[in-house]
Design a protein around this nucleic acid. Structure first.
Ligand SMILES: [Zn+2]
Ligand SMILES: [Zn+2]
Ligand SMILES: [Zn+2]
Ligand SMILES: [Zn+2]
Lengths: 127, 127
DNA sequence: GCGGTTTTGAGACCGAGTCTCAAATCCCTT
DNA sequence: AAGGGATTTGAGACTCGGTCTCAAAACCGC
């Protein structure tokens, strides 16, 4: 039947994610959940995050140490400007790619100092 | 004094990296090194890759499982088009960002079907 | 409340990556 | 070519993020 239940752990996690436009690692979330008086096991945190990502309600990102981090994020395809200092994330429309540095600054007040860009697809010999 | 020695393990690793424009994980390299009859310990593989990356002679990339992968790559700042099928990597100049889809196809014969882009810097309130 | 279904938690487990330190290697000097 | 001080290596212990298992708990339509 595959019905989905609304449970205390899921709601506690969603509440923390929705409160801030930032990426959270699983362990960060566990700590926050403990502090909020609604502790949730690691296994459940991982399962919930994976589920949110699969439903398109959260974005998954690997941080520079290769840890999975998650953010509440459901506005379709777009990109992210991440503050090196506080972690705040600004959404950047994909169409803003032309002259992206200038736009990023004028639209979001974001002072860009680095970027990473990766393309995926098929090369000449694999098409 | 900090002199650097040229050693058999380092040369074996460099030889494998230079042979293909692809990202290799540490464990992949260990396997290749064993097959090539020049086995190198995991610790040394990691140390050597880290050293190459620090010297700017190799690019570091976290794959979708969060594993560190390395590729021989020393042409200054640029981006990568990675084939989903064979892993072959095409370099893409940073200035090619305008109309990148079309350029990628006409310049490299690369059929783009996804991309990831991330900006890093300081947000309005952290500048 | 009851009962079938879904979810949770504790802890075992896995694998990538790091660390330690004695042994091996490198290469400069003689 | 042998000696010797500095660098590098390897085996294996260790850390830690993430997965898996399965019995117990929670959920919700009845
Ligand atoms: Zn900030
Ligand atoms: Zn895009
Ligand atoms: Zn290919
Ligand atoms: Zn660039």
């Amino acid at each position: 039947m595959e019905t989905e239940y609304e449970t205390r752990p899921r709601e506690a996690i969603a509440r923390i994610l929705r409160a801030e436009p930032r990426f959270f690692s699983a362990s960060e979330l566990c700590t926050r959940l403990d502090e909020a008086g609604t502790p949730v096991s690691r296994a459940t945190v991982y399962r919930t995050l994976e589920r949110l990502a699969a439903k398109g309600e959260a974005a998954l990102r690997l941080n520079d140490r290769g840890e999975a981090t998650f953010m509440s994020c459901d506005n379709g395809h777009h990109h992210h400007a991440i503050c090196r200092s506080c972690g705040r994330v600004e959404d950047v429309a994909c169409s803003a790619l032309d002259n992206f540095v200038e736009r990023l600054h004028s639209l979001h007040g974001f002072q860009l100092d680095d970027h990473s860009l990766e393309f995926h697809g098929k090369c000449r010999s694999c098409v």
